[in-house]
Amino acid sequence: MLKKINSSNMGSSDLGWLKSKFHFSFAEYYNPDNIQFGVLRVINDDLIQPQTGFEMHPHRDMEIITYVINGELTHGDSMGNRNTITRGHVQYMSAGTGVFHSEHNLGNDILRLLQIWIYPNKYGLTPNYGDYRFNWEERKNKWFHMVSGIDGNAPVKIHQDVNIYSLDLDEGKEINFPVKTGRQAYLVQIEGTSIINNIELTDRDAMEIVEEELTINAVKQSHFLIIEMKKTT
């Protein structure tokens, strides 16, 4: 099963300093038929103006992954962490029993990022944070496995049976991705244009996949993120 999600049909918000596309119900965007996909609860595609950001605020019982597309993201939290990451880098926070954090764009350019929330496999975990400065070339014309469950082999490990891959595919190149029996996946066309199983995706579009292999052709240079997980009934 494949279902294209056109970016023009997603929720949106414009606060001036922050412009967002909501893949799932979030903030003022509420659609009872679009709350989550499996254990994936949130994907927000955010554009944050320079010298602005999210002030200190709380979270709990959620696995939060942030993927930077362009610009600089500076993180601070109540655990004493403060770090800045840039394009292609990832930060991970297990909110667990509760944590306060802030996220700012202290650079001179617009910051674009994907904010991803995933339900944990159990509640009441000890809060945790990490950031990972991956080499861009690791995803050049190949799937780069960035995130896995605790028992997986990706650099970032979260408390859920989920795998997250990124890919930068050159124009004219083709690649496959198998979504196996008992599994489902959510793909984001971050940048570029592609044809996936005869369906065209452009910047910021997405696709739900259940138990089906993908054949991806890059019509233009294409940047993807795919979140693969156990199928839910």
Rank of each mutant, 00 (worst) to 15 (best):
M1E: 10
L2M: 10
K4W: 11
K4G: 00
S7V: 13
M10A: 12
G11Y: 10
S12A: 09
S12H: 14
D14N: 14
L15E: 01
W17N: 02
K19I: 12
K21A: 04
K21Y: 11
H23Y: 13
F26V: 03
A27Q: 11
E28G: 01
E28R: 08
E28A: 07
E28T: 13
N31P: 07
N34E: 05
Q36F: 13
Q36A: 12
Q36R: 14
F37A: 08
V39N: 07
V39L: 11
L40R: 02
N44Y: 10
D45T: 00
D45H: 07
D45I: 02
L47G: 01
I48G: 04
Q49F: 15
Q51S: 06
T52C: 07
T52L: 02
F54C: 07
E55H: 05
M56I: 06
M56N: 03
H57N: 04
H59F: 11
H59V: 06
R60F: 13
D61R: 06
M62F: 13
T66A: 07
G71K: 10
E72Y: 13
L73C: 07
T74L: 12
T74V: 13
G76H: 15
D77G: 03
G80I: 03
N83P: 03
T84F: 03
T84N: 00
R87E: 15
H89K: 07
Y92V: 06
M93E: 05
S94Y: 15
S94K: 12
G96Q: 01
G98N: 02
V99Y: 09
F100S: 06
F100I: 01
F100W: 15
H104Y: 15
L106V: 10
D109F: 13
D109L: 07
L114R: 08
L114T: 04
Q115H: 09
W117R: 05
W117T: 00
Y119P: 01
Y123Q: 09
T126K: 15
T126G: 00
T126S: 05
P127Q: 06
P127S: 05
D131I: 02
R133W: 10
F134V: 07
F134A: 11
F134T: 05
E138L: 15
R139A: 04
K142I: 04
K142N: 11
W143S: 00
W143G: 00
F144A: 04
H145S: 13
H145I: 09
V147P: 11
S148F: 15
S148M: 06
D151K: 14
N153E: 14
N153Y: 14
P155A: 05
I158T: 03
I158N: 04
I158R: 08
D161I: 12
N163L: 00
I164L: 15
Y165N: 00
D168W: 14
L169S: 05
D170I: 00
D170L: 14
E171N: 10
G172R: 01
I175T: 06
T181N: 12
R183I: 05
Q184F: 09
L187C: 10
I190C: 12
I190V: 07
I195G: 02
I195E: 15
N197I: 02
T202C: 11
T202N: 09
R204N: 10
D205W: 14
D205G: 08
A206L: 04
A206H: 09
E208I: 11
I209V: 15
V210Q: 08
E211N: 00
E213G: 10
I216Q: 03
V219P: 00
V219Q: 01
Q221I: 01
S222K: 09
I227D: 01
T233I: 10
